[in-house]
């Protein structure tokens, strides 16, 4: 609880004062390192109209290591697995302290607009995405309707 690095305070303030369009990130009441995130499905993507809940956690040595982010809402996406874990380079080896919560969430939003089946995390989804894209997109839309709308 004590000794929250100034950087985290600053990032939080800015996220609240100037939120990223289509993204809300609110720190938990009891743990300032834990954020409740909602990302709206980008326009012209199969996730359009959906509201996706995520959790974001800033580890003890943030910003030396990347935030941990996970989808809570189920999503049909080649780079997100059943547990909501995300395959995104900047959350792994491409992390740099020059990045921040804001840029991470923007990248996740961009990942929804541009699924990358060549670097899959959910193999079955990625496979279908490559073999029969229109069916995969139909599935994604269906999952969005089922899990990410009017909760």
């Amino acid at each position: 609880m004590a000794a929250l690095p100034r950087r985290i305070i600053k990032e939080t303030q800015r996220l609240m004062q100037e939120p990223v369009p289509g993204i809300s990130a609110v720190p938990d009441d009891t743990n300032a390192r834990y954020f409740h995130v909602i990302v709206t499905g980008p326009e012209d993507s199969p996730f359009e109209g959906g509201l996706f809940k995520l959790e974001l956690f800033l580890p003890e040595d943030y910003p030396m290591s990347a935030p941990k982010v996970r989808f809570i809402t189920k999503i049909y996406h080649p780079n997100i697995d059943r547990l909501g874990r995300i395959c995104l380079d900047i959350l792994k080896d491409k992390w740099s302290p020059a990045l921040q919560i804001r840029t991470v969430l923007l990248s996740i939003q961009a990942l929804l607009s541009a699924p990358n089946p060549d670097d899959p995390l959910a193999n079955d989804v990625a496979e279908l995405w490559k073999v029969n894209e229109s069916e995969a997109i139909r599935n994604a839309k269906e999952w969005t309707r089922r899990y990410a709308m009017d909760n």
Binding site: M1, A2, A3, N31, R33, Y34, E55, F57, E60, K68, R70
Partner: peptide, 14 residues
């Protein structure tokens, strides 16, 4: 300080 913090904060993800 880190020892104190580590206990409550590790509960969350993974």
């Amino acid at each position: 300080l880190e020892r104190k913090i580590q206990k409550p904060s590790n509960v969350n993800i993974l």
